[in-house]
Structure formats: C-alpha cells, structure tokens
Design a protein around this nucleic acid. Sequence first.
DNA 1: CTGTAAACGGAGTCCAGACTTCGTTAAGGA
DNA 2: TCCTTAACGAAGTCTGGACTCCGTTTACAG
Lengths: 215, 215
Amino acid sequence: MRQDARENRQRILAAADHVFGTHGEAGSTEDVARLAGVGIATVFRHFPTKESLIEAALVRHFTDLHDQTQAAITAPDPTAALHTLIRRMIERGASKLTLASMLSRDAPPAVVTASGQVKAAVDTALRRAQATGSVRPDVGVEELYLLIRGLAQTTAAAPVPAAVLERAVDVILTGFATDSRPATGKTVDSSPTTEAGGARNPAPPDRPAARPRPV
Amino acid sequence: MRQDARENRQRILAAADHVFGTHGEAGSTEDVARLAGVGIATVFRHFPTKESLIEAALVRHFTDLHDQTQAAITAPDPTAALHTLIRRMIERGASKLTLASMLSRDAPPAVVTASGQVKAAVDTALRRAQATGSVRPDVGVEELYLLIRGLAQTTAAAPVPAAVLERAVDVILTGFATDSRPATGKTVDSSPTTEAGGARNPAPPDRPAARPRPV
DNA sequence: CTGTAAACGGAGTCCAGACTTCGTTAAGGA
DNA sequence: TCCTTAACGAAGTCTGGACTCCGTTTACAG
C-alpha cells in the first residue's frame, strides 16, 4: 500500500471516530470525507460501505482502549486499579460506546471480539478488587459495565460539567465499595459470555427491594 | 374535533411512542402509521412534521412520568420516596430519554418544560431525603439525573436482565447513602470475607463464535 | 527523470423516507 | 334518513445521503 494511502486511511478513521462519535450513525460519510480532507470516493475505496467504516473505527477504538486498560490492570493495588480503569473508560470510551450499542443488533465479529477483550479486562480488574475485600462481591462485570456504559453514553450525547461527572463516578465507586452491608455471600457469575436471556443464575427471587439500610 | 379523529390521534401517539422509543429518531413515520393502523397522510394531518410528532410523544411521556413522580414524592418516608422515584424513572422512562437526548440540541420549549417538571420533582425528592441525613449532601440533581439517564438509556438500547439492572440500581442507591462516603479511601479491611472464588479464572479472551451481546 | 499503475476526487446514479395531492368514506347534525 | 364536510388513505413528488464512474494526479521503481 502506498504511503499516502496509508496516511489517508488513518485520517479517515480519525474523522469517522469524531463524526460518528458525535452524531451517531446518523453522521454522513460525506462529513467524514470532508473532515479527513479527502474526496468521498476515497472513503469508499478504503471502506466499501458505511457500516464497514463504522466497524473499523470501533475496532480501532476498542483496541486502543484495551491497551490502556492493560496498563491500568497491572497496577499493584487492585482497588486503585479498578478505579483508574473505570475513570479511564468513561473519559475515553464515551463517544464510541454509543456507536457500539447502535450496532448491537448484528455486531460484526471483529467488534464483538475487540469489545469483548475490554470487557474481559474489566472483569479481571473487578475480580481482583473483590478478592481484596474492598469491593462488594455480589456484583459482576455486567452491573459495572452497565453503569459505565450509561455514564459514558450520556456524557457523550451532551457534555457534562467535569465536577458533576466526577461526583457521579464517585457515587458509583462508593456504591461498589464494601460497607456494612450484610454480604449476601453469593458471588454472581457474570462472565462476559452471558447467554442473551436473563435467566442465568436464578438470582434471589426476593431481591432486597426494601433494604433496611439507609438510603 | 370528530370522535374518530381524536381516537386516531391517541393511537398515533402511542405508536410513535413505541417506534421512536425502539429505533430512536431513525424510526420511520410510515412505521408509525402502520402500527397505528392509519394511512401515512393521517399522521401528517395530525402532526405536520416528523419532529412535531416526536415532540408530542415526548411531551405526553414526560407529563405521564410527572404524574407518577408526584405520587412517589408524597410518600411519608423521603428516603423510600427517592428510591421509588429512581426505580420508576428507570423502568418507565427508559426509552424516551434516548429521544430526549437526541432532541437536546434545539429541544422544543414544550419538551423542555415537561422534562423540567420531572427534574424539579426529582430535585425535591432528593433534597427531602438529604434533609433526613440518609443521603450524602454533596450531590445534586445533576449527578442523580446523569446516572438515571445513563441507566435508562442503556437499558432501552439493549434489554438487560432484570437482576442485573436491579443490582446496578442498588449500587447507585448505596453510593448515594451517607455512611460510606470516601470512595477513594479504599476500605481495605482484610475481614475474612468468604472470598472463595478469589481469582475466578477470568473469562477466555477469545470470544466464542456464539454471538454474545456486544459492548 | 520518466513511465506506470495506484490513488485520488468531482460528478453523477439510485433509493429510502419525509411530505402532498386528491378522490373516497363516513361521522353526526337536522 | 340525508347531506355536509371533516377525516381518511393510496399514490404520488422531492430531497438527502449512500455508493459508482471515469478522467486526472502523483508516489516511487528503474
């Protein structure tokens, strides 16, 4: 591949990252081309369809994110590592998770793989933190991921004051910490390979909906 | 207005609620018409543009939601009231908040007003709970709303097992409680938590071919 | 330097979906 | 019951955006 072609490809991916991250899949390919400073034909030469373009941008994003998570995970203190990981994912992962959810119907295998690796990394970090006893044992990656995604998605849609976001993250972290809660003892199995249905692990039918604790 | 026209209007609104709630603003007006069992022209007679249709659906939704929140707020126990409110908003408010965020750029005044009332209600509930001392005082509606929106939005995009959602909500509620404030001060108490599954074999990095949910 | 094929971009084509037109149907008052 | 006209829906028009064609430009091997 020629040098300029390689450069253009990167420019296009970066542009796609921004356009689709901002406008969701409603962003137009033409905008991507304009932002990348190339003709629209060039975009389609590198990525035959709009979908493949989005897919490539997502894979790139998750791969980058995965590299970052690896660094965070290897930190000595598991609890601090988890905190770092969560903050980083919300900051960096914001815009693209929106896209990922848009593709959720028939997510391309490549994207599933890439995002799966990130999820596995979070899973590892969470379990390690739980092993130290500082994180409540009754939650799994699913819950954590749900909260992270929610926050990331929302902040991506409409920018939020840093201070507000920071406090929101703090609320989540606090919620994950072990406190005087009567550990239900059962560690939920939330490995990333969940069956689509929700009937896994017959969770206690009597969820403490009205827990006698404060709040 | 003729009786049948009034009925059709309601049918159209309900259909719009479902279509746009499911597919976001990408849902087509034709789908709405089909689901409502009317011709497409009828839809446009009642609502001159697609945007006005979405707007009307949103206003209806927030108005309904506001009615429900009022009931929750008047409960005797402020803390329990806040909990009920949060759960209800996540359950009921799921799909439409997505739309609301889509319209966020130039949200129609009517929608702003309607959603603002809901927000005010949440604000009231939050302050009352804080007054009892059971909720940490350093967070405001913004943080709460951010978390609620995130959860609602995400669950709307891709259905989540009830048990997982329930635990995620519980995490938020715990995070709002007064006792375990300093999230950063890792509570590394080496209490003999029944950490049997300490290092539960992290999931295999290679996703199985069976397509799990992305992200 | 020069030849050549890889890459490029502007000007299309084509279709999905928002919105209109107009002849038909039926609500509901007299 | 009949008549007026509000309300209806099938069959359009039109525009935005995905994707293609083809003549032009340019990296780089010889």
